[in-house]
Structures are given as structure tokens and as C-alpha cells.
Design a binder for these strands. Structure first.
Lengths: 351, 351
DNA sequence: TTGAAAGCGGTACCAG
DNA sequence: CTGGTACCGCTTTCAA
């Protein structure tokens, strides 16, 4: 009752194992000629036995697993899922399978996963944003292992990387809010690892600076990456006096939390408070207040990551590539003109 | 520059390959005694070379890959994400990795994935809901292959399966709506494969029947599984005359679409229309109208699936197991008393 | 306490 | 056109 092997097929077809291999592999590229009759017998035998070649054995010989590793910091963020979708699509198209691992924001798990993937000899690795932990030394180790790696969402010069132009997108957000007359703009900063959000924070600061507005540390609220974190942090922001008139969330998930927080404070969006996200998750367009956000081409990022990886598999000596996808501000219903009252910072204690 | 092998370690430590294997594997269970000195030398050598055993080779010998396959119909539904999260957690805990494959609702892709996973010799397979396509013959083939399989979300008697008690949950939904005075209750039926929703539909019918209400085919709207499908289908329902006073969506994703549709029709939830979902995705509690829904223990389902699978790996001869998790109706803000007007079916053309 | 060698299931070179 | 055979990297008897 064991699974049939090549030898079983050979026996049944009355040929050698080598012949079975030839028939099954060189379907098109018939470098080794096989008689029609033999081919037929082999295929028939394989069919009858329900033979499926063992990918482990093949891979042991060929050195290739046709499997990619995908390491994710956490599985709650819809944006990540869209990226994963892009990755799976492209991987499938190229005939690769995907080994998925979530570190759940835990440093140790991340390293364990890395090890497990390495042992399974994935042909390449896609690291999502993260760097939750990955220390310098860990990175060097990876690089030394010559395991092709693509990093999503953070350019770094040693690995291939791909991501949307966060800085640019965030600049557009600031320009949009400033043009609507907002002066007290808060920033909701919650990501798996601090460095991941730096570009957006920088754009925020620059935007304020160029508008001649002061950078107020009290308007930058740091929190974790979950929607609940976003909700709580937004609550804190909305309780400030004077209250901000706009909140820029570092991603749509947090913006969702903020939206709900505003609603719980009996604030109307966008009349009392404007809220902007980042990513343009597919839900953004189905919320009660359709979310103004920056479209980040999640699927294209996922697909691009796979493409970069495959390119490197072809040519390991390429210098590190870096791809930055353009962003687009999508103005929907969650942003509007700044409320009058807040234009004058002194008169806004009218909760 | 190639990756170091066991032989390299052996050479460097001045021992045989067998010894390396002993040292590395029998860390605890020291059936084969190794001298402290030798052990030290081997570990040191392995460390120095950055040696990682090749899981393919190990697996070829042992017959086990310590890898599970997870086949998903599509990646858009947050409920699935939560299940996947449960799966990854439990798999990690048991020391298994996960090969993820999404069929994107395509029959052919599903079969391709199945083949790819089988070739990679996953130790077991988790099939999410789906059966998008899986024909009888395909199923038999799988069963014959003696590949341990757990099906999520649909009891079927031949494989192990796990899911929440959909029927029971949906009954609670109906009871809730009926108790609120609803009489025109619509059903939003959009899933990857028709059979997946049958239990909920059945509960809907029974509920009506027991309340002495007629089953109106016009109030059952079938659609695809995406949020947009849900939105469009809900629009159609809301344009019916007389309009339904409540919509039961087959899952939260569609309920989300319905919520937005109601809003676009200037209807207030729950004053004008009540909406109920199913699953209790984590977003349900952060919508503008917090969604009334049935909590389905997504993560527990994912974890349970892995447990079932591992149990079967231990004991392949077990009869098919079936686990049904209890559900809980969670009443939030999207349901309320039926509007007066609709109590009399003849007076509700007041759009 | 350690080593030699037989596989696990394929692939591909070299003969015939 | 087809078969024999030496690996791929590891585990596990069996001997020494």
C-alpha cells in the first residue's frame, strides 16, 4: 500500500528506471529519443499506478526545491494579505510553491522560522517589512548563506527590495490635509518595527515644516500594529486639548481603528475630524466613511517581489536591485475641510 | 562556496558522518553513546561551518517532511485569515511548516495545487471549506493516496473535519431577528461553492417556517464570495418592493458589503434595516455599525484542524473524526427592532 | 565508542 | 533507443 515509486513504474512497464525518468521529463525537449511504444507503456503504467514523482528526491538531485519562503510579521493586517495574494499568484505562475511563516511579532519565532526555511532549502526567501528583530548579525549570516532574499517595504542596499514610495505618498497626504486648512494634524504611528514607519513620519514632519507649522511631539502617538492599538491610540489623540482636526494613520488598519474611535467620541468624519490611511486595503472603499488613503499597489508588490527573486535565481551576481512603486492619493469620504473652531487653537475645547 | 554538508562537518571534526549524525540528533535520547570530547568537536565544527542539516535528505530517509499543506479557496476573506493564523500557530507549536496554496476559486488551479503538494509529500493536508471543485473522483483519489486530510467547514464522513456549528448559529440569528419583529428577512448567499452555505440556508428556511412565514425565493440572493459581490447583491435586495427589513449574510464579508450598500441607499442601520453576518471577523467590532454576528472561533478551528491532522498521523486507522465547535450570537449595533411600516407588507413602498 | 555501507527516490552520464 | 550506475545528503543497522 505504499506510494508507487519510479521503480514500480519501470517494473510494470518492463523498462529501466532511467527510461521512466526520460519519458516523464523530456516530454517536449526530446534530447534522449524514446520509441513511441515505450513511451506509451511507461505513461500507461504511471497512470495506472497513480505515480507522482517525489519532489524531495528530485530536489536532492537538482539542488532546486521550486519552493519559496515567505516570512510575515503578523497575519492581521489586510494589506499583508493582499501582498501575499500577489506573491501566491506570481509564484504559482512560475511554478513555485510557498512556505508561509508568520513570526507573530516575536523575535525568537522569526529566527526559528528562518532556520526551518533554510533547512528545507527554499530557493529563495521573501521577507515582509518586518525586520521585527533581524539583527545585523542575523542579516550577515543570511547574506553569507547566499540564500537569495527579497525584502518587501524597506530599501536597504544589501538585499533586493521592493515597496511603494511611502515617503512620496505621505507627502501627498500632508499636502491634501494642509490644502483643506488643517493645522493640527496628528500622526498615528503603529507598526511592527519602528524603522518601518520612518519614511512616513519624515514626510509628516517635512510637511509640517514646509507649512510653517511646529512639530508637536504630543500629536505623534506611537502604538502597536493591531487595530485595537490603533483604536486606543486614536482615543488618546482625540482626547487631547485642543483636539487635532486630522489624523494621519500609518496604515489603513490603524485608520480603521481611528474611524471607530471618532465615532465612539460622537465625532463626525470628516466634519469634526479628518482621517487618512495608507495602503488602500480593499475594505477601505466599503467602510461607512470610505477611507481617504494612499494606494500602495499591494498585489503588484507581492508579484514584484517574486519576480525580483526569480531574476536573482537566474543571475545571482546581479547587484542588489531596488524597486519603488509609485503611489496615488485616493480622496474619498474621510477627509474634508478643517472645522472652523480648530483654526484657532485656543477655542477648541468645545467637546 | 557551497553549503556545508554533513561530510564537511565530519571531516573538520575528524570523525565519520555517522558520528555527526549521532551527535546532532540524539541530543537527549542518547541511545548511542558518544564521548564528550567527540561531541564537543562535532558541535564546534558544525557551528564553525554554519551547518544546517538538509531537511530534504532527512525527509527522504525518514519518510516524513514535517510539512503540512493548506489549501484555501481565496485570500480575500478575513475569516480565512484567522483560520490560517490558528493553523500556523498550532503547526509551529508542533514543529511543522506550512505550504500555503490558494486556488483563487479556480478548479484547475486547485487540482494543480493538490498535485504540487502531493509531490512534495506533505505529511498531511488541510482543505479549507472549498470543495470549489473537488469532484467525487478527485476525492476518492485523495483518499486512496492515503494522504491524511482534514476538511474545514464541512462534515462529510470520509475525511476528518472540523467547523463551527453553522446550522445552530444561523438558527440563533433567525430567532434574534424574529424576536425583534422582523418579518421580511432576506438571505445573502455568496460562497465559493454552493454546498458550503447549505446549512445556513437551511436554518434560514426552518426559522421562517417555524415562525409561520412563507419562504420567498425573491428574498434569497445568490452571489459570489467577494465583498463587491455582497455589495451588489445587497443593493438588489434593498431595491425590492417591499423592501426587506433585515438581511442575513452568509458571512461577515458580505455583511460588510451589505452595510455599505444600505448606507449608499440612505438607509439607517439598524433603524431602517438590520444586518447580520457570520464568523465574527476581527473587523466586525470596528465598523461604524458594529456588526451583529455569530462568533465562529476561527482560530480554534485552525488549531483544531492541525490537531486532528496530527492525531491521524499518529494513528492512521482511526475512523474519521468530526469536530463541531459551538457558536455564539453576538448582538452588536447592526440589528434592531423591525421598522413599523414593514410590519404591514402593503405599506412599505415608501422609498 | 566509532565507522562502513545500504538505502530513501530520483537524474543523468556513459555504454551498448 | 535503452539500461547500468554513480551520485544528491542523511539515517541507521551491523561490525569492529
Amino acid at each position: 500500500m505504499k506510494r508507487p515509486t519510479q521503480a514500480d513504474v519501470a517494473r510494470l512497464a518492463g523498462v529501466s528506471r532511467a527510461t521512466v525518468s526520460y519519458v516523464l521529463n523530456q516530454q517536449e525537449n526530446s534530447r534522449v529519443p524514446i520509441s513511441q511504444e515505450t513511451r506509451r507503456r511507461v505513461l500507461e503504467a504511471a497512470q495506472k499506478l497513480g505515480y507522482e514523482p517525489d519532489a524531495r528526491a528530485q530536489s536532492l538531485r537538482s539542488g532546486l526545491t521550486r519552493t519559496l519562503g515567505l516570512l510575515i510579521p503578523d497575519l492581521q493586517n489586510p494589506h499583508f494579505w493582499q501582498i501575499i495574494q500577489g506573491v501566491t499568484q506570481q509564484a504559482r505562475e512560475a511554478g513555485y510553491e510557498l512556505l508561509l511563516s508568520s513570526s507573530e511579532l516575536d523575535r525568537e519565532r522569526e529566527e526559528d522560522s528562518l532556520k526551518a526555511l533554510a533547512r528545507r532549502r527554499v530557493d529563495g526567501l521573501i521577507l515582509l517589512v518586518a525586520f521585527t528583530s533581524l539583527s545585523e548579525e542575523k542579516l550577515e549570516e543570511l547574506a553569507a548563506r547566499r540564500l537569495p532574499i527579497v525584502v518587501i517595504g524597506c530599501r536597504d542596499g544589501v538585499f533586493d527590495c521592493i515597496g511603494s514610495n511611502y515617503y512620496d505618498g505621505a507627502r501627498k497626504v500632508m499636502a491634501h490635509l494642509l490644502s483643506l486648512g488643517h493645522r493640527r494634524i496628528a500622526f498615528l504611528h503603529g507598526v511592527a518595527n519602528i524603522t518601518a514607519g520612518q519614511d512616513r513620519l519624515l514626510a509628516y514632519e517635512r510637511g509640517l515644516e514646509e507649512a510653517g507649522l511646529p512639530y508637536d511631539e504630543g500629536l505623534v502617538e506611537r502604538c502597536g500594529p493591531s487595530i485595537e492599538d490603533g483604536y486606543n491610540a486614536a482615543m488618546r489623540l482625540l482626547n487631547r486639548t485642543p483636539r487635532p482636526t486630522a489624523i494621519v494613520a500609518i496604515n489603513d488598519l490603524l485608520a480603521l481603528g481611528a474611524l471607530r474611535a471618532a465615532s465612539d467620541m460622537q465625532l463626525e468624519v470628516p466634519k469634526d475630524i479628518s482621517i487618512v490611511g495608507y495602503d488602500d486595503i480593499f475594505l477601505a472603499n466599503y467602510l461607512c466613511q470610505r477611507l481617504t488613503t494612499v494606494h500602495a499597489q499591494a498585489e503588484a508588490i507581492g508579484q514584484g517581489a517574486v519576480k525580483l527573486l526569480l531574476r536573482r535565481l537566474q543571475n545571482p551576481e546581479l547587484p542588489p536591485q531596488s524597486v519603488e512603486l509609485p503611489t496615488r492619493l485616493i480622496i474619498r469620504e474621510s477627509t474634508g475641510r478643517a472645522p472652523r473652531v480648530a483654526a484657532d487653537p485656543n477655542s477648541s475645547a468645545e467637546v
